[in-house]
């Protein structure tokens, strides 16, 4: 039943008998999954607003686009690979292959850590080359967006880290299947966000 059909029901006419209560029209999905999707909606709004704000700022004359360091392409590749690894972990966990899950989750985590270190390295490089945040709004936007994206990756790493360490400590794959699945969704989502961020940086 669609949401709008639901809103059109007349609850004052419904009377349930003792052994036949109406089923509550809950969302038929794992609670954590519903929570994650609500959270993704929040992140979508957050990044959307960052994009809009930066886009508005970029219209001003003093905006001098910075030439993206080529290392960013490597980092993007790392993030894509980590997403692929997470996808591998998800399909392995569906098949119940504990070892494959272990390897893929670890690979995904390590690749993400390298990605974050790479981002830090790029910051270092830019600062050494004199691209300070204060010297141009385009530089500031670059630091801002990479910082916010990185912070979200860090949050994901914390959850993934718990899952990964649990696996190495001998937890069975069934008990972590849900977190592996949710982490995969989150990784794909943040990859998408990164691609949009990267596209935005390239286009200005």
């Amino acid at each position: 039943m669609s949401f709008f059909r639901k809103l059109a029901t007349k609850p004052w006419l419904e009377q349930d008998t003792m052994d036949n209560p109406r089923p509550a029209d809950i969302v038929p999905a794992e609670t954590a999954k519903v929570g994650l999707f609500v959270f993704l909606a929040v992140i979508t709004f957050l990044f959307f607003l960052f994009f809009v704000a930066i886009h508005m700022r970029a219209d001003y004359e003093d905006w001098v686009a910075l030439s993206e360091p080529s290392l960013l392409w490597v980092n993007t590749l790392l993030l894509i690979l980590s997403s692929v690894a997470m996808q591998g972990a998800r399909s392995a966990s569906r098949k119940g292959e504990t070892n494959a899950v272990k390897v893929n989750v670890t690979a995904g985590g390590v690749l993400t850590v390298i990605f974050l270190l790479g981002q830090l390295f790029i910051w270092r490089q830019l600062i050494d080359d004199g691209y300070y945040a204060a010297s141009n709004p385009a530089n500031a936007a670059f630091y801002l967006l990479t910082f916010v994206h990185g912070a979200h990756m860090l949050g994901g790493l914390w959850v993934l880290g718990k899952t990964g360490f649990g696996l190495w400590a001998g937890r069975r794959v069934e008990s972590v299947a849900l977190s592996v699945e949710l982490c995969t969704t989150y990784w794909h989502y943040l990859l998408l966000v990164w691609l949009v961020v990267f596209g935005l940086l390239l286009s200005t």
Binding site: L7, T9, R22, A24, I26, V27, T31, V34, G35, V42
Partner: peptide, 24 residues
């Protein structure tokens, strides 16, 4: 607020008891 809000929304969507439809 975000941590609280996720709870409020998800609880209403998911944890209603038997018979508690949205329009009740």
């Amino acid at each position: 607020f975000t941590m609280g809000g996720l709870n409020y929304v998800t609880t209403v969507l998911q944890a209603r008891c038997r018979g508690m439809t949205l329009m009740r």
